[in-house]
Nucleic acid binder design. Sequence first.
DNA 1: CAAATAGTGTCTCTGAGACAGTATGAG
DNA 2: CTCATACTGTCTCAGAGACACTATTTG
Lengths: 224, 224
Amino acid sequence: MFDSAVTVDLVVLTIRRDALSVLLVKRGAPPYAGRWALPGGFVGAAEDLPDAAVRELREETGVHETAGHLEQLASYGAPDRDPRGRVVTIGYLALLADLPVPQAGTDAAEAAWHRLSDVDRDRLAFDHERILADGVERARAKLEYSPLAAAFCPAEFTIGALREVYEAVWGTALDPRNFHRKVTTTPGFVVPTGRWTTGERGRPAQLYRRGPATLLHPPMLRPA
Amino acid sequence: MFDSAVTVDLVVLTIRRDALSVLLVKRGAPPYAGRWALPGGFVGAAEDLPDAAVRELREETGVHETAGHLEQLASYGAPDRDPRGRVVTIGYLALLADLPVPQAGTDAAEAAWHRLSDVDRDRLAFDHERILADGVERARAKLEYSPLAAAFCPAEFTIGALREVYEAVWGTALDPRNFHRKVTTTPGFVVPTGRWTTGERGRPAQLYRRGPATLLHPPMLRPA
DNA sequence: CAAATAGTGTCTCTGAGACAGTATGAG
DNA sequence: CTCATACTGTCTCAGAGACACTATTTG
């Protein structure tokens, strides 16, 4: 038996200009000073793990977890993963609507959204490349059988906006017509508000809110 | 920042006499002395988490993880989950074929398989009720889209035995004829060995081995 | 008007489930 | 023989995907 430091690290994803993006902070102090890292930090002595994740999200990035989604991802505890000594980290996955620019917090010199395709994975601090990959994979998989895609959208959204979420996360084009029918006929996925967009290009679209379903029956299937 | 003890706890499942069963150890020392608990223990100072899980499985129960399956489940770190102080535990899920009776290890007065329906959930040590529930739910879900059911079977098995795994884990009856076609036509799920059972009741059945697939396309669906 | 986006209708193909029917062993 | 289990064939229905078509806006 021995004691270990315990941290939480967050994979915070959003869609910005049709691209899946992750929130990274530039480390201001060693180890890995100057390198990009997932936001995160030490768990408090009397703090539960989800509370620590919510706190770090708020403190280090200025993001208040309101309408988004937060879930535990996995834990990472290789003995040499932190040069300061034994540190076990609990990864969390957060999905958010595109929101105001993040604020750098105490430990971070800078916080910014990065398009996933632009992240220099080999240059991330610690084992954050692995944690990021696990988070993205989890998000991709969960879009199939859960209504989580709506967590990337504001409270009211169009079916077209929801489709763009799927397209950004999966990196594939979807047929707008079949997608529309599928989403609106899957029970509990979305509920119409009766309001409509205006001033956009093309025919106005109805606005929807998230529905009560927690699991999609039938699921949304990724194209082969 | 502070330091915490880190443990692994294992949800070890098998099928015994057509019933989903979990391996529990009777605690020999406080806290929760005399109560049933999940096998587990402290992570070594230079030990990675999966290594600790494999070691505990071997030490505390005599089970060598050979043909089964082991995966990380989730982490639990409520500040008051262990009366001795702050302990964060990483839960692991193991699926095994029915094997020789387990051996009690160092910390455990006794180790035994319990039918899941017979477990007195309210009497489990620590928060192990919650971890057990998460493990069972994970197993139930993964049978749908992964070939993990075969981890409950010995190296060679019949389609009927595989069906009994599904029936035990899901607690539902499945149509043997449709199940047979589904399993044998899902690419990579099982591969025939050319050998056949003998001495059983009814027509001899072909023996199969686990196939190369890691994901089932199409998935096995739980009856509504 | 054209261009763009929203939404509906319809056809075809795959696969799930119901279930009849056949095959082959034990007792 | 009967009984039990293994396997195959066939029908029907739901849902995925392709894609023609209509609806309603902006410019």
